[in-house]
Amino acid sequence: MSVHLRSLRIQAGDRALVSQVSLRILPGKITVLVGASGSGKTLSARSLLGLVRGIEPGIVQADLEIQDGEKTHRPYDARDREAAFAPIRGPLLGWLPQNPRAALDPLRAVGLQISDCLKLAGRQSDPGPWLKRVNLASGVGALLPHQLSGGMAQRIGIALALARGSRFLIVDEPTTGLDPSLRAGILQELRAARDAGVGLLLITHDLRLVRKLGDHLLVMDRGCIVEDRSAQDLGAMKSPQAQALWQATARLEGR
């Protein structure tokens, strides 16, 4: 049971946006992908779901291998990539996008949207327990996305991902724009998911998260992986980019 991406290359015209990116997501582990804005983190993550605009062979090349028990999916090797991704999106890989409010249908009550996900997963369509699981009152289910606060929207996003029951979850900048108390709550939810056996890929530019809950760290810069190591030996990071990030984090913490 694992997601293994090797030698990902995404091209725009002659320019490579991402090249030579490899990463692994394992059940019950959190892989953290760190990098400055525009370093290609989000693009790499979306390539796991086949959601890079235009996934024709000329633009995205990758060796993606997803093990699901006895079955192995290699969607980028398939002739019809769109069809090959269909069984992966949802049951195997879930995605919690960067701005969770924008990821919600603006005119559909959030409870219904959770029900949609539950139905997709073949579960009971009552959203109540899932709202409760992310510490929201059941009345929230009747609200429309624009009536939610940032933290609520983020929790709904997590609830959706959990409701879908994905084995692996890509979480894009979950704490951006949230105040510290809310951030702690969200991290708590993610930890709970990990403990339930979900494999997470956490995308952030905040190295502190690695220390709090990371198992494995990847640092990206200008479309390449520059650092790939266990979260235990963060101090041994060599690349200048990783060190710059590290220093920036230390400054933030030392305030």
């Binding site: 995605w95 996008p97 249908d105 603006p106 997709l120």
Partner: peptide, 27 residues
Amino acid sequence: HRGFVLAGQAHGLRSGRILWLHLLWVN
């Protein structure tokens, strides 16, 4: 290319359902 369309795809919603239900009917 709104976020919720991509998110729906990531959840495994078929394009047809996103287009007819979410985009046309709901919105």
